[in-house]
Structure formats: structure tokens, C-alpha cells
């Protein structure tokens, strides 16, 4: 398990920042997918003496029709396959993807986190298995199966692993343990897995520790993401990592026990006073906190 930061790697000062925090692995948040941009991202990270482990996620806009199962999806899928091939050529071997169309109704609201930091609050309506009919659910799975059947062979050939990213930011998602198991059955390729978020699974009423142990053993967890949620009357508030220290500690313990060797990345913290848009202060805090928990576990 190695600490990783998600950033736009074209900022040299941010790569230095990562190194100063003792972080060796970078997950790139990029906007351009042409071959030179991908190569530049990788070169920049490696020239700084760090490792580019993957790209944060495929842009959902590139496969909206595929999610909806609408006409035009084959063109989109061809486009996604091309992105994967370019990644492979650039030697970048991991990318996240989502299966939800974020809309205005599902975006988080601004909330007050600790000490007046600005955090995100997700409406409870966005909780697992909300208002979704059987038919919708079935179609969602069919669309996903169609997508993965087309995309995964290309990913395998390109040497790129796809990590499904559960998210609270949109309704009607596959997010709880049962859904994720179904997803693994649907696409049993070793190039397909999960960007694991123990906090989300805990909100879904699951025991993240048991899932981490099982899925790490099966090679399903490609990335581990950590964040802290608190349930309030209004919804789910994202907080600082130490605010759910028990949940985090149990999750890290499970990763450690199961021998997880992938990247461990903190989600953004609530925005701290005077911080940059990316959140340097918040990330510095999170990395320090995680480093200490891992050291203390021995």
C-alpha cells in the first residue's frame, strides 16, 4: 500500500509538493487524451522521480450514450477504446470509470465542515437503491455489460486496467456490496476492478473491512480511496479524515492484513481557509494523517 495523490501532473510545483510529503505515486487528473498529452503527463511525473500509476477517470461525457443505452453508443465506445489504446502506448496502465450521469439534482450542496471549512453535503436521496424501477435497473446493467464487453478486450490488449468508481454524486448507482459483486461477475477480467471507497460502503450499511479482505484477495481492488462521511439530518457530509478515524483505521487494517499493494489516495478534504482550489493544505493534512496511521500499524 503506497500513498498517492490525485493531481494535474503538469504542475511542477505540485509534483515537488508530493515529493516533499513523501508521496511517490501520482494519479493524473487530465483533460486532454491525445497521445502527446498522455506522454507528457507520464514524462513529467517520471522526470520528477515519481511514478504515474494511472489516470483518475475516463471523462463521463465521452460515453453518456453508452450509459443511457442510446443510439450513438458504438461511436462513443470506439472513442473510449481509442483512449485506452493511447494510454497503453504511453505506458499508463490504470484508469477509473463511472457509471452515472451527474446532473444538477445530484450534485452535492455546500456545507459547513469543521471549523467553518467548506465541505460537500450529499442529499440522502442519493443513497443506494433510491427511486429506481426494476426495469431501469435491468437496463442499467445491460448497458454496462454492453460497454464492458466491448471495452475490456481492448483494455487487456492495451495493458490498461479499468477501475469502477462508485460515487455519491448521482442517483441510481451500483454501490453496495451486492452490486459490486455482480459487477465482478459480469466482467471477470483481471483488467477490471474497483476504486474502493470504504466510506461509501459504510454508508450503504456494509462492513467495508470484510469486503476489503475478500476483494483484495481476489485482486479486485485496484485503487483504495479514503474519505470521511458523517450522516446528518440533511444528508451525508464529507469531513476531514480524522473525523471518521475508527472507520478509516478498520479499513486500513483490513488493507494491511489482506496485503493490498496498490495506491492509497485521500479524497479532497473540505476546503480550508485560504487554501488553493486543489487543496494543498487539506491534502497535506490527509497525507500526514495517513502516513502516521500506517506507521503506527507497523
Amino acid at each position: 500500500m503506497r500513498l498517492a495523490l490525485t493531481m494535474d501532473p503538469l504542475q511542477d510545483s505540485d509534483l515537488l509538493f508530493a515529493q516533499q510529503l513523501g508521496v511517490q505515486q501520482i494519479i493524473a487528473d487530465i483533460a486532454r487524451w491525445d497521445a502527446p498529452s498522455l506522454a507528457a503527463a507520464r514524462n513529467r511525473v517520471e522526470e520528477a522521480g515519481l511514478q504515474l500509476v494511472g489516470i483518475e477517470s475516463l471523462p463521463v461525457q465521452a460515453y453518456v450514450s453508452a450509459i443511457k443505452g442510446e443510439q450513438g453508443r458504438d461511436g462513443e465506445i470506439a472513442q473510449v477504446c481509442e483512449m485506452l489504446r493511447r494510454m497503453g502506448q504511453a505506458g499508463i496502465s490504470l484508469v477509473g470509470y463511472r457509471w452515472a450521469i451527474p446532473g444538477p439534482a445530484s450534485l452535492p450542496a455546500d456545507g459547513q465542515a469543521r471549523g467553518g471549512a467548506s465541505g460537500k453535503v450529499y442529499a440522502k436521496g442519493a443513497a443506494p437503491r433510491s427511486a429506481e424501477t426494476e426495469g431501469e435497473r435491468e437496463r442499467r446493467w445491460q448497458n454496462l455489460a454492453y460497454f464492458l464487453q466491448a471495452v475490456l478486450p481492448v483494455a487487456e490488449e492495451a495493458g490498461v486496467r479499468l477501475a469502477y468508481q462508485p460515487t455519491l454524486a448521482a442517483p441510481g448507482l451500483l454501490r453496495d456490496g451486492e452490486d459490486l459483486e455482480q459487477l465482478f461477475r459480469l466482467a471477470p477480467s483481471s483488467f477490471h476492478g474497483l476504486d474502493m471507497d470504504h466510506g461509501l460502503l459504510a454508508l450503504a450499511g456494509e462492513d467495508p473491512g470484510a469486503m476489503i479482505r475478500r476483494w483484495v484477495g481476489q485482486g479486485r481492488i485496484l485503487v483504495a480511496q479514503v474519505r470521511s462521511f458523517r450522516a446528518t439530518d440533511e444528508g451525508y457530509e464529507e469531513g476531514f479524515l480524522d473525523e471518521d478515524r475508527e472507520g478509516l483505521f478498520r479499513a486500513l487494517h483490513a488493507y494491511r492484513e489482506a496485503g493490498f499493494a496498490g495506491p492509497l489516495r485521500p479524497a479532497p478534504s473540505p476546503r480550508m481557509v485560504g487554501d488553493t482550489p486543489w487543496g494543498h493544505k487539506g491534502y497535506a493534512f490527509s497525507i500526514g494523517y495517513l502516513r502516521a496511521l500506517l506507521q503506527a500499524m507497523g
Partner: peptide, 10 residues
């Protein structure tokens, strides 16, 4: 921030 995170984590 890094130091406080580290110390609090310990």
C-alpha cells in the same frame, strides 16, 4: 497541516 495530520494520526 502535514505535521498536525501526522501527529494527530499517531
Amino acid at each position: 497541516a502535514f505535521q498536525v495530520g501526522y501527529f494527530k494520526g499517531l
